[in-house]
Simulated assay, not measured.
Amino acid sequence: MRPIVVTVGTDTSAAPQRLWDLLTDWENQGEWMREAADFAVTSPQRCGVGVTVATTVRIAGIATRDRIRVDIWQPPAEANPGHLGIVHLGWIKGRGDIRLTTLPDGRTRLAWTERLQPPLGPVGATGMRLLAPLFARTFRRDLALLRTLAEHP
């Protein structure tokens, strides 16, 4: 079954490090990711590959407990503006990638891609394809909130 792919992005005046700090402040992600709540780090470590986090996600009236594991941890550095990759381990499987890019004008571009594997076979795939525009709208709202937090600490 093909994954549902949702890609959103935003440009901001915030520095890559400021964005990284907000992205990896696990327990406070609900400040910009309004469809999620009850974040809890479930691994002994809080940073790096292998961090695991659990959260409750609610979209379109459907709530599920999502567990993620970080599989790419590239914080901002001179040669690399940043890449955070996660694997979804809950009811909906898949992965998410957030990449930071420094633009020529000094702004930062944040690109977020989710590749979600529908549960429940063809029925789940049909439902998720119908919900894909809602996912995109939700993720765009999330990035607008994140941008506001990053630009106005």
Rank of each mutant, 00 (worst) to 15 (best):
R2K: 14
P3Q: 10
P3R: 09
P3I: 03
I4L: 15
V5L: 13
V6L: 11
T10Q: 10
D11F: 11
T12W: 08
R18A: 13
R18C: 01
L23H: 04
D25I: 05
D25A: 14
E31P: 02
W32N: 10
R34V: 14
E35S: 12
F39V: 11
F39R: 06
A40S: 14
A40W: 03
A40C: 12
R46N: 13
G48F: 10
G50L: 06
V51A: 05
T52P: 01
V53D: 01
A54M: 06
T55Q: 15
R58P: 00
R58F: 01
T64Y: 09
R65M: 07
R67T: 05
R69Y: 00
R69V: 06
R69L: 02
V70F: 05
I72N: 01
W73M: 10
P75N: 05
P75T: 05
G82L: 13
L84R: 09
G85A: 09
I86P: 03
I92W: 05
R95K: 12
G96I: 05
G96S: 14
G96A: 14
D97Q: 11
I98P: 00
I98E: 04
I98A: 12
R99D: 13
T101Q: 12
T101P: 02
L103Y: 02
L103S: 05
P104L: 05
G106E: 07
T108M: 02
L110C: 12
E114W: 08
Q117T: 13
P118W: 00
L120K: 10
G121F: 00
G124N: 07
G127C: 10
L130V: 15
L131R: 03
L134E: 07
D142N: 15
A144E: 15
E151N: 07
E151I: 14
P153M: 07
